[in-house]
């Protein structure tokens, strides 16, 4: 649905030229939430601005629904932009306008008649959960509420795409979650394609279907979120995954565990995009004559199910333990028996 081909942006100053976005190509499908992650300076902010040409690309093209954005003249670009919503890290609301006037602004730009504007504004206010705050000024709202206004404003003209520029980076974790939920909600309800850029892996984990990792203006890795989580190829990607999963330090703690137990078995369970076996532990405990002790682990939820690993200690009759492990192996959960030294 969105095709980005060989997109480049070079900033030149007197002393040097900087390639902010370097020959970048991507395909983004209709209705998906596509995340771009990278550290600051990786060029992701420039990248998202190239999509609606807030920055003009030096080279390459952006095609949205067969419309080549990069070739449009100023007038046609303005019309095309009404189909591309955008939300910002610092919300960028007009302080001089109330909530409803802010949401009404893009409708005024699109020349929607007053009556229709009012109806649409009320619809949007309900959609983003701001009923009762219509007459408030942005200065009277919390960060999360401001971003809700930003989202309502971006959706006003029923866009095909929503661009999110670090939309949750200025919010606290709890508010971030509620805004992310709203985005997923909108994505599902309206079938809206969302492109978001962030430096926070948990944003990607929580709502994205696919992800691209950006470094020095290039996409160094991309794919399904789960694949990238499971098999990060590049060092930078591994670092982002560690943000969520913790790092290899866990393994050291394993030696301590081994010393503590002399009977039974320590088993590591890998949950990979698990949707069906969420109650695995209790199932196993009920079916087999064994004791299960959860030792440590970390499991996190992505759009494609649970992902993570769990260390458990199984104690009981040796045969029974074996049967239990065989059972777990027969599910989609991967099992690894940690040998005692």
């Amino acid at each position: 649905m969105i095709t980005i081909k060989d997109l480049s942006k070079v900033f030149s100053t007197k002393s040097k030229t900087i390639s902010a976005v370097d020959n970048l190509s991507l395909e983004i499908n209709k209705g998906e939430i596509f995340g771009v992650i990278g550290y600051s300076g990786a060029g992701k902010s420039t990248f998202i601005r190239l999509i609606n040409r807030l920055e003009d690309p030096t080279d390459g093209q952006v095609v949205i629904d067969d419309e080549n954005i990069t070739l449009l003249n100023k007038k046609k670009l303005r019309v095309a932009r009404q189909d591309i919503g955008m939300i910002f890290q610092h919300f960028n609301l007009l302080w001089s306008r109330t909530v409803e006037e802010n949401i009404s602004f893009p409708l005024e730009i699109a020349g929607v008649p007053k009556q229709e504007r009012q109806e649409r504004v009320h619809e949007l206010i309900r959609l983003v959960g701001l009923a009762g705050r219509e007459k408030a000024y942005p200065s009277e709202l919390s960060g999360g509420q401001k971003q809700r206004v930003g989202i309502a404003r971006a959706l006003a003209n029923n866009p095909k795409v929503l661009l999110c520029d670090e939309a949750t980076s200025a919010l606290d974790p709890e508010t971030t979650d509620s805004i992310l939920e709203l985005l997923v909600n909108i994505n599902e309800k309206l079938g809206l394609t969302i492109i978001l850029i962030t430096h926070e892996m948990h944003v990607i984990r929580k709502i994205c279907h696919r992800v691209a990792v950006m470094d020095a203006g290039k996409v160094v890795e991309q794919g399904d979120v789960l694949d990238v989580f499971l098999h990060p190829q590049k060092q930078i990607t591994k670092k982002f995954v560690e943000q969520i999963m913790g790092d290899k330090d866990q393994e050291d703690a394993l030696d301590l565990l081994k010393e503590k137990y002399d009977s039974g078995k320590i088993v590591r369970l890998h949950f990979i995009g698990e949707l069906t076996n969420q109650a695995l532990i209790s199932q196993v405990a009920k079916q087999y004559e064994i004791d299960i002790n959860i030792l440590q682990g970390k499991i996190t939820q992505t759009q494609k199910g649970a992902y993570g690993s769990l260390f458990i200690h199984i104690d009981g009759d040796e045969e029974e333990i074996k049967r239990a492990i065989d059972y777990i192996t027969s599910t989609s959960v991967e099992v690894e028996v940690i040998p005692y030294v």
Partner: peptide
């Protein structure tokens, strides 16, 4: 705020607007 001007541009506003 430059960001607000940018937001208006992103909505497709004319310079007059």
């Amino acid at each position: 705020d430059k960001g607000v001007v940018e937001a208006a541009k992103a909505m497709g506003a004319k310079t007059n607007t």
